[in-house]
Design a protein around this nucleic acid. Structure first.
Lengths: 238, 238
DNA sequence: ATTACTACCGCCCGAGTAA
DNA sequence: TTTACTCGGGCGGTAGTAA
């Protein structure tokens, strides 16, 4: 869930529109206020709060400020944007991602083979996953797409507890690896990976089945499924 | 400017995500509240307000309600979305629209040839427009694109007053008609047209120059320009 | 001109609860 | 179970104004 306050959405959007993602730009609180339909004072307050949260950074510049949206701020607003996008735009049928196979930390496979998870995988994905996940380091251009992916409806594997500790939920997306193997992309509630790493499971050991080794390129096509199966009163055409 | 309250953004987005654009869907205020990170009471209030504003419509369904987002509500949220989109996504270099030439109401040309406008056209567009606008009735699929267009940076022609009445601003977008004539798409502050109509000007009479008549298809490629030339890495400003 | 503080207050949210 | 009322508190708004 996004941490950004909703009333700050338009403020950051306005800053980005002025080019404040790549550079420090000059904008007065008066102008900003006018553009977001609020007072100068409100704009000033927004900037103070956004700065305190680390969503923007400012530098004095004469009487006013130069403002830049930080990476953190950009992430927040983008998450919100993707949420709207998922709600407003027709579902894409497929999202394609690519990167190179990398050695994991060895934990993914262990966790995913726990009975509490395995049972659900079999039931909801329809296959018994090989006890080990393939980690793919995504090319940079695909990282945004992965973030977008998680906004779409997923097959959810519930978390559970074994009495000693709790295990988080896992979102699964049906996917085809290198156009050959059907498996699933996993998005874990708790992960130690940085976001360029994507975890994939399949009924077989993916690398062996494809004759690949770490460092080889891997292509993943994620199949987005229509969600709501509620009655279609009208058959709409495009 | 959007009239929707910012705190309602996520509420409508959540409804749309549940499929509430095409159908009445069942969703409880408790679930809705949880999904937008608010209480059940807050969700209930949102729905009441959205209903009153005509952004959603509800029907009783057992204990709860069936909810649908109205066209008006969809427009509002889409406008907001496009605003974010313009701020977040890299500028497309070109937007292509198409439709059929239709007879205008004869006013466009009159207004646009007023000296208060003409002077600015010459100065900011670089050409002296033929005193008459070409009206194009856009195909349905392009209407959304036209709405998106106005979110991008435009060449603005200021409004003015002649002492008797005032004339609104005009946004201009450089465009090429049928790949042949360079002109501009106009977006008027005040217009009596419905939104499927797009007005285009050029230095010549477009229909004659292209050998077209009313009812013929016309293709318009709008060239989106990068805005901010403010790469003020150095903070020395005037 | 700026930015942003103080004071005020209206609106939004959540708790409790009725129907 | 629902939805939605009342009420109290606080956040987020504006106006005025200082620096």
């Amino acid at each position: 869930m996004s941490e950004i306050k909703v009333q700050h959405i338009l403020t950051i959007a306005e800053l980005l529109l002025k080019g404040a993602r790549d550079n420090y730009v000059n904008i007065t609180t008066r102008e900003l206020g006018a553009n977001i339909g609020r007072s100068q004072q409100a704009a000033s307050k927004h900037l103070l709060e956004l700065e305190e949260k680390g969503y923007i950074s400012r530098r004095r510049s004469g009487q006013g400020f130069c403002i830049r949206v930080t990476e953190k701020g950009y992430r927040e607003i983008q998450e919100l944007f993707l949420r709207l996008k998922a709600a407003l735009e027709p579902l894409p049928k497929m999202i394609e991602l690519a990167g190179v196979a990398v050695a994991g930390m060895g934990e993914g496979g262990y966790y995913m083979s726990l009975e509490g998870y395995r049972r659900q995988f079999i039931e909801r994905l329809g296959f018994d996953p090989y006890p080990g996940t393939l980690n793919i380091r995504l090319d940079k251009v695909y990282i945004d797409l992965k973030r977008e992916l998680v906004m779409y409806p997923a097959i959810t594997i519930d978390g559970f507890s074994d009495g000693k500790r709790t295990y988080g939920w896992v979102k699964c997306y049906n996917a085809r690896i290198n156009d050959m193997i059907d498996g699933a992309v996993l998005v874990l509630e708790r992960t130690h990976h940085d976001e360029s790493i994507m975890e994939v499971i399949a009924p077989v050991k993916i690398l062996d089945a494809l004759g690949l080794k770490y460092g080889d390129r891997v292509d993943v096509k994620v199949l987005i499924q229509q969600q709501q199966q509620q009655r279609r009163i009208t058959s709409n055409n495009k």
